[in-house]
Simulated scan of single mutants.
Amino acid sequence: MSLLMMKSLFSYKAWANVELFDVLETLRQEDGLRTAIRTMNHIYVVDRIFRAHLLNQPHGHDATNTKSTPALVTLRDAVAETDSWFLEYVDTLSDAALVERVRFSFTDGDAGVMSREEMLMHVIVHGGYHRGNVGQILKVAAIAPPRDLLTRFLHVTEPERRD
Rank of each mutant, 00 (worst) to 15 (best):
N41M: 13
R103K: 12
D110W: 14
N56Q: 08
E88H: 15
N133K: 01
E158N: 13
H122M: 07
E160T: 10
A142C: 03
D62L: 11
F10M: 00
Q29Y: 05
L54A: 10
N65H: 08
L75H: 03
G127A: 13
R76N: 07
G60R: 07
I143W: 00
Q29I: 00
H130S: 07
A71S: 08
K7Q: 14
D95Q: 03
T69N: 02
V102G: 01
D83V: 04
L55A: 00
L120V: 04
Y44K: 00
V73R: 03
T69H: 00
I49A: 08
N56R: 11
D108Q: 13
R51G: 06
T69D: 02
L54H: 04
I43N: 07
F104M: 10
Q29R: 03
F10L: 00
H42M: 03
E158K: 07
H126V: 06
M114N: 11
P159L: 04
L27Q: 06
L87N: 14
T74E: 15
G132S: 03
Q29M: 08
S8H: 13
T39A: 09
F10G: 03
T66Y: 07
H155V: 09
P159K: 02
E81G: 15
D31H: 14
L150R: 03
D83E: 09
M121Y: 14
G32H: 11
T74A: 13
H130Y: 12
M6L: 12
